[in-house]
């Protein structure tokens, strides 16, 4: 993973909401408190209503204290003690040998950003980054993660800034339902370093060429992202978002309206200014 130089601008509201969300992440690593606790505590007066309303929606339903019964030792069979770093914070768990990393994240560590789409390595919704590499948490046993550094969608933002890939997904509407999105973004972030390292893909024109940082074509991005299924069909927007971060240049997306006077084309950047 690397920090990209280019920063995409958020609207004020988005930044405000983000700050709320990220403050929580900070608290999470400091105190071990969960996002949910933060959501319960968030003061309605402290954020723009757009932000608070979105948070409030979730606050209403995430109402119970966290005392995770599934973590109780009586329910653990063939227990394995594991200490791993998740989003920079050390986590110590006693897990059932059968527990996958995905279930450990979701059911034990309150990190529900990683999603269970198929549980069999056929969709990519559970993609996380371990030691800099994108992998499937549904096919990784938690027991094998001793000493590993795991980054999930919750750990991508730094300080009060989104990872550029997250911002690009918002800008390019690289999702609809949002369920595959955490996996898509983790996958895309790792893809950036793979490209930088000159790793090849099945559509690479000449794999014999010496590995060096490469500019990926659209088809290269598509092939490298094909392990992340998006049933809403946001693929073209996902490719645009990745291309923008990968190249550091604005990628135009057009909205076309045909009227009596012909087709009017608006570009993304322009519309962003107007719209936001």
């Amino acid at each position: 993973m690397e920090d990209e130089s280019k920063e995409l601008k958020l609207t004020d509201d988005e930044q405000e909401l983000l700050t709320e969300l990220l403050n929580d992440s900070a608290k999470l690593s400091e105190t071990g408190k969960s996002r949910r606790q933060f959501l319960r505590n968030v003061s309605a007066a402290s954020a723009a209503i757009l932000a608070t309303q979105m948070l409030a929606e979730q606050k209403i339903v995430a109402y119970t204290p966290i005392e995770n019964v599934s973590g109780a030792s009586s329910a653990i069979e063939n227990g394995v003690k594991v200490v791993m770093k998740v989003n920079g914070a050390e986590k110590s768990l006693n897990v059932d040998s059968r527990m996958t990393l995905l279930d450990a994240l979701r059911e034990r560590l309150e990190l529900t950003g990683s999603k269970k789409g198929c549980d069999h390595g056929q969709c990519g919704a559970c993609t996380v980054i371990i030691e800099g590499r994108r992998v499937l948490s549904c096919l990784t046993l938690a027991a094998t993660c001793e000493g590993k550094e795991v980054t999930t969608i919750e750990g991508l933002a730094k300080g009060d800034a989104l990872h550029p890939m997250q911002a690009a997904f918002v800008k390019h509407d690289g999702f609809q339902c949002g369920y595959c999105t955490p996996g898509q973004i983790c996958s895309a972030v790792a893809l950036l370093s793979e490209a930088k390292n000159g790793e090849a893909s099945y559509v690479t024109a000449d794999v014999r060429a010496k590995a060096r940082a490469i500019q990926l074509s659209d088809d290269e991005i598509r092939e490298r992202m094909s392990g992340n299924i998006c049933r809403c069909g946001a693929y073209p927007n996902i490719v645009a978002a990745i291309k923008e971060v990968h190249t550091g240049k604005d990628v135009a997306q057009t909205w076309q309206f045909a009227g009596e006077t012909g087709v009017a084309i608006f570009e993304n950047a322009e519309m962003n200014k107007e719209g936001a």
Partner: peptide, 15 residues
Amino acid sequence: QAMNRIDGLLKVTGT
């Protein structure tokens, strides 16, 4: 207007 989704941030942060 072609606005970003107001729930977009929640979706890209896993929240």
